[in-house]
């Protein structure tokens, strides 16, 4: 190839720009992050959840979630004896400010006069987008505004969304809502702006007991692989074949 100095000098900056993109990978906002190296999901350890609502508050603060809408929320289940199919479920304001106290025994402790005195078991179930591998919500979008990113995170392109709410109806987990001001679909992004920078999600960062853990199923060194081998883990609504990726440790059969 004949390349004189003049052409070489012209091509040098172009080559430099091209090399920058080679090094950066995609998306270009996050250098050194390669989407195909990850397959994100979450592990929720039910016996560790104390229902403090830290995750709900952290999610709202991190993602400017409007009041009354939730990208993650906590439910409290009360299963009385054999009533597996009709558990009493509460989630006051998504569990943002915690839950009303329950007396320690049927006798009733002091200071808990208004608390229910039922027997039975109580437990908390934090919920969020399950980032399904075969997600119903992305399949119904008529304009291609919601999609599964190559790293397994279900995202919404809010500049493309029409706000038709098909996806809100399609999600079997109730994880989507129409943003009251933007009038477009909004949902958990698994804190995509954080995980692409090497940080964990806002909810996992702020969980005081470690009940929520961000996991990368494509990372062979992630503790999730050992955890899945040694624990009884369930996903929500497995019968719907959504490929849900939020794993619940010791999930009770009454949870819907």
């Amino acid at each position: 190839m004949n390349l004189d100095r003049r052409h070489f000098l012209v091509m040098l900056p172009a080559a430099a720009i091209a090399w920058k993109y080679v090094l950066a990978g995609t998306p270009d906002a996050s250098p050194n992050y390669t989407m195909t190296d990850h397959w994100w999901s979450m592990l929720i350890d039910i016996p560790k959840c104390i229902g403090c609502g830290n995750c709900v508050r952290a999610c709202a603060a991190e993602n400017d979630v409007p009041d009354g809408h939730f990208r993650t929320w906590v439910e409290r289940y009360h299963v009385n004896d054999w009533h597996m199919e009709g558990p009493e479920v509460i989630s006051p304001d998504g569990g943002k400010e915690g839950f009303p106290a329950v007396a320690q025994s049927a006798g009733g402790g002091e200071g808990f006069s208004s608390a229910p005195q039922d027997e039975g078991k109580y437990f908390f179930v934090p919920k969020l987008c399950n980032h399904c591998a075969d997600s119903p919500c992305t399949q119904v979008c008529p304009v291609g505004a919601t999609f599964i990113a190559p790293d397994g995170v279900v995202l919404v392109d809010q500049t493309y969304c029409l706000g038709c709410a098909y996806c809100v109806q399609a999600c079997p987990y109730g994880c989507r809502y129409i943003h009251p001001e933007k009038k477009v679909a909004d949902k958990c992004t698994l804190c995509y702006h954080r995980i692409t920078k090497g940080l964990t999600t806002a909810c996992c960062e702020n969980c005081p007991t470690g009940a929520r853990k961000l996991v990368d199923l494509k990372d062979p060194n992630d503790p999730i692989h050992a955890f899945l081998k040694t624990h009884y883990v369930q996903v929500l609504k497995p019968q719907m074949a959504t490929g849900a990726k939020v794993f619940y440790n010791e999930l009770d059969g009454s949870v819907r």
């Binding site: 998306p27 906002a29 996050s30 603060a61 991190e62 999609f147 500049t159 692409t196």
Partner: peptide, 26 residues
């Protein structure tokens, strides 16, 4: 960038990743 990775706008991924942080991380 529509169709870059699938039936959606590929540039949206970068835009979502560029949202501002509120929690710095421990």
């Amino acid at each position: 960038s529509f169709g870059e990775y699938g039936h959606y706008r590929g540039a949206a991924i970068g835009e979502i990743a560029a949202r501002p942080l509120h929690y710095a991380g421990h």
